[in-house]
Amino acid sequence: MKSVKFVVFTFMLLCVFGLVACQKRAVTKADTAPEAQPQAVEKKDQEKVTESKIDSKIESVDVKDKEGQYAESKESMFSDILFDYDKYEVADIYKPVLKSVSTWMAKNTSARLSIEGHCDERGTNEYNLALGDRRAKAVKDYLVSLGVASDRINVISYGEERPICNEQTEVCWAKNRRAHFVVLTKVGK
């Protein structure tokens, strides 16, 4: 019984509502004096708030960047490892370079190494970032296999974001497809 009452009540309520809605609409239809649409006005006000929020600067940022405890070497003491197009395997000709890196790391026990992976501009940005990551990782893996402790090497990819050569030529692209070494030496405590 309750539900039948509910239906009847809803029905009547909605009929009244429907009538009002129709009347309003009929007024709006008049050619000469269109009735104001409060909805449209309301929407505008709300919109303004959102817009101004997007325009404003970030108010609270809960990210705190840690101070680096290591100083970066200005110029790399090791030459770059170059890669084939779209590839991340370390070619045999670079293995002597990596051998000298591992030897140096063995002598300088407090130093750490950061390996940057880079790509040429022809790929897409996101995939290049992953490719650069994979290149740096491939170099790290080889150094670890030569005995360098894994926790002394970190890797960072810059994808195609930091080219060292800016022309659109094969020579330039080849230079950009690289793993670059940055030696980090301990500073302070």
Binding site: I58, V63, V155, I156
Partner: peptide, 28 residues
């Protein structure tokens, strides 16, 4: 930021930025 790729979330309503992935490695 500081040699680390993180994933960040910006909330336009709260107008706040939050780092949601900060693990080692390249996070995208």
């Amino acid at each position: 930021r500081s040699r680390q790729w993180g994933v960040y979330l910006l909330d336009f309503v709260k107008m706040s930025e939050k780092r949601i992935v900060a693990s080692k490695g390249t996070n995208m």
